[in-house]
Design a protein around this nucleic acid. Structure first.
Lengths: 148, 148
DNA sequence: GTATACTTAGTTTGTCTAACTAATAGTTGC
DNA sequence: GCAACTATTAGTTAGACAAACTAAGTATAC
């Protein structure tokens, strides 16, 4: 617990604040009517097509009602489709529409460009170092958090 | 625009998501009744004691009404104080109460601990490298964003 | 008949835009 | 220089909607 490490921690704290502003506060949704919260739902369905409401709620740390309402809005906007589960009459399966897929594609491209901008000032080697160190740090911290 | 750099960008995107979960989703406010949004206001006043509503709105990328309402709630909770500006009859000056200062202290300590956890898996040298690289990358990206 | 999957209803917070009040600042006329 | 009119600025209030929660309801599964 040296002074140096304390400084590094405070700097990191500050850096992450700036990072969030850079990487997440802006997005290509702007006035498309889709919010960041709704985007999270879309992303989840991208990763787990056919999932149900409760699955998503668990994965995103939300309650089922929150997801249910969000899904309804996205369905209304034509980005998501709700289909009955052939195996279980209570359940539904969620899928992206073509339009929803396109939107996710756009956002993904936008964010990748943001990351490219972020790495622009670094050499390829430095980029690799940064990613490696971060990966290591985060993995360690995630294990620490889980064992709590 | 090599494959390697594309990979680094995608990895970063993923890492930042995990990072956010680690560093920001949890907080010591839990059921203290103070939300993350309100905390942002408190932090701003910590950094700029005596600031006005519009100052804060500009700095936090919010509108004046949003801040106005938030300040009211924090005042009600005894965390913030509103004082008339002696130089300008229209303006007010915002200050933390002792209780508000203590809360910010607590949150700061909690987050610093989170950062300590994050750096735990790295050597002192690696920590320094990580912070240096991030700082460089973010500064570059911020300049890029500003010149848009 | 109990548990599960989802929805509905009602509440609080956060955010916005539009419209308002009050105070300051600038301009014009004398 | 000063009074009066206009414009700008600081902050609030009102009204709308999204996001999140808890509690309660409906329908299906086992």
């Amino acid at each position: 617990m040296t002074n140096v490490s304390l400084l590094a921690e405070d700097n990191l704290l500050d850096l992450f604040g700036r990072l969030r502003k850079l990487a997440f506060d802006q997005n290509p949704l702007q006035d498309s009517g889709v919010t960041m919260s709704q985007l999270a739902l879309l992303y989840w369905v991208t990763a787990s097509p056919g999932c149900g409401v409760q699955d998503m709620a668990d994965g995103l740390d939300l309650t089922a009602p929150t997801v249910s309402v969000g899904v309804r809005r996205l369905e209304k906007a034509g980005l998501l489709e709700r289909q009955p589960d052939p195996q279980d009459g209570r359940a539904i399966q969620l899928f992206l529409t073509t339009q929803g897929q396109e939107l996710c594609q756009q956002v993904r491209a936008f964010r990748r460009e943001k990351m490219r901008l972020l790495l622009k000032g670094l050499t390829a080697e430095e980029s690799t170092t940064l990613v490696t160190l971060l990966e290591h740090a985060i993995s360690t911290a995630e294990k620490g958090a889980k064992s709590e």
